[in-house]
Design a protein around this nucleic acid. Sequence first.
DNA 1: TTGTATGCGTTATCAC
DNA 2: GTGATAACGCATACAA
Lengths: 341, 341
Amino acid sequence: MTDKIPTVHDVARRAGVSTATVSRALSNSDKLHPVTLERVLRAVEELGYLPNGAARGLTSRRTRVLALCFLDLGDPESDAGDDAMLYIDGVVRGMERAARERGYAILIGAVQDPDAALDLAVSLASRSDGIVLLGQAAPNSAIQRLKRLPVVVVAGRCDDDHGRVDQVRVDNAGGMTALVDHLVSVHGHTRLGYLGGPADSPDATERWEAFRRTVTGLGLPVPAPLPGDFTQHTGHAAAPALSPLPDAVVCANDQMAIGLMTALAERGIRVPADVAVVGFDDIDLGRHLRPALTTVRQPMQPIGAAAVTLLERRLRSAQLPPTDLRLPTTLQVRGSCGCPA
Amino acid sequence: MTDKIPTVHDVARRAGVSTATVSRALSNSDKLHPVTLERVLRAVEELGYLPNGAARGLTSRRTRVLALCFLDLGDPESDAGDDAMLYIDGVVRGMERAARERGYAILIGAVQDPDAALDLAVSLASRSDGIVLLGQAAPNSAIQRLKRLPVVVVAGRCDDDHGRVDQVRVDNAGGMTALVDHLVSVHGHTRLGYLGGPADSPDATERWEAFRRTVTGLGLPVPAPLPGDFTQHTGHAAAPALSPLPDAVVCANDQMAIGLMTALAERGIRVPADVAVVGFDDIDLGRHLRPALTTVRQPMQPIGAAAVTLLERRLRSAQLPPTDLRLPTTLQVRGSCGCPA
DNA sequence: TTGTATGCGTTATCAC
DNA sequence: GTGATAACGCATACAA
């Protein structure tokens, strides 16, 4: 560190060539005498030369970096990942793999406070060729501010899509329809209950709408949705309202389903014998319950990969109409719907 | 995208100030007339100006980015994380949180082929202020090449530590000792078996050494270690060699323990009634087995956080002696050792 | 408090 | 094939 950091100039001098030649040698460019190449590479080796990414980025006008900005809602004290984190991990992995194939690295940054998302997004965007905004980390202020470069909003609500902002979401409707279909056609349930999510969640809205539509389409009565906010607690609290007991209760997410199952167990009501319970999201815990939770799974890695694909596509041609991608969800049939474990 | 990207100059012109003032306004620097600041900020807003991170990095000589380089051993087809990936996710999260507090973002890159690790590491290093090399992604070639900037090797073998390369590892010895102690003092086991890991793994070596030392220290006979390579398969294959059946089998990692338990079950040998089985690592699956696997847990997030701390420390003062951090492991007592589930 | 001018390390455009 | 040189966008030392 005391010794000066070597630059292209040092390498050039040592190799007895010009900096231009060094640059060519390092970017495996076209015409270079093999001997020259060899000399440069050896000088690089001997000097322990590392290219300066900033300088490169400055001239080449691109960083070969794609950014991901998200909200960190996890418990900082816990080493165990909570569910939102597992979701993010999946997206990150999907992004990294897709980016790798295209020669990009992934820059990740998170904030706890949604209000800080804009600053973080700007900070990340300034160091990357494109950025993915995840869920609540995609306030409109950030979207507006960043849309000079490719932006993909994942699982968020993007009001302004007359711009060049692409979106990736999951097919909540398809998943919910499959779930209800399963309950009705496989198990013959006809009296369905519904435990809803917060009104300001696009996911919650789409799931409820799909539920209502599907149930109606099957000629069954649509229940009044029980209020919930996606927490285990409201799931638990919903139990008393379940009377008379329906054949099955569809919960807008897994956490509430789990809370409900707990409350049911406390009251001696058996799942799925007395009532079936199903969720949405496929969080880790659900797989390990007794009975294991039947639910709908989101394709985390494909979401990340799709975001990268959209980013790169727009990097090629900026003037594309905005894409709104819907990735398919998959029904995870387990025990809580009445299927054999 | 068609319109020219605004720079400090554009902002300066629009705000009627110099570029220096713009720069100061954006780096919330010391003395700036509030009115001037306001004007600049408004110009920034109106122009949708985003600072150019490359240019910044070039002059400031730092990127405010910390990199992580690792091997991606996961199954690209599977959406479910395999265990090595979960470990990495934990480290990433720990790094991100620690980095965030210090104003850094995390750049992640992975390769499948260890031979490609050097190139990736160089590529990442050139864009960051410091880099973490994870496990097998830390070949000596890379370490040597990169040590011009802060490098932390996590869970790797770093032969050359007469340099300025810090390391973070876990206390394999402490964990193993606690495990053996538990088996012996709580359960009274005296005839212990050992299923070892690959010879080229530092973890495997340390675990075996600690096992041997502890068993010897307790005055018990040291068994010949059964050969294994950390895969579930070799764990399974080791079962026939277990005769006469010892009181307990210590496996160098969880995967082998799980393979062994499967094989034992196939032979009608009950765990823990006939023989106790314990592992090391605390992978997710172990918690959900019947009986659940008693094992030793590594502190993933603290590992990531420690790596960042070391990086930043060395960023402050490069001429520090190399640190070799050992993070404590914790015994996870579950059913497979004979404790009540 | 604000402006001017220089240099950061690299790539790209020309020449040769 | 190779070399000189001009940007690239910003921060900062030095002036004012």
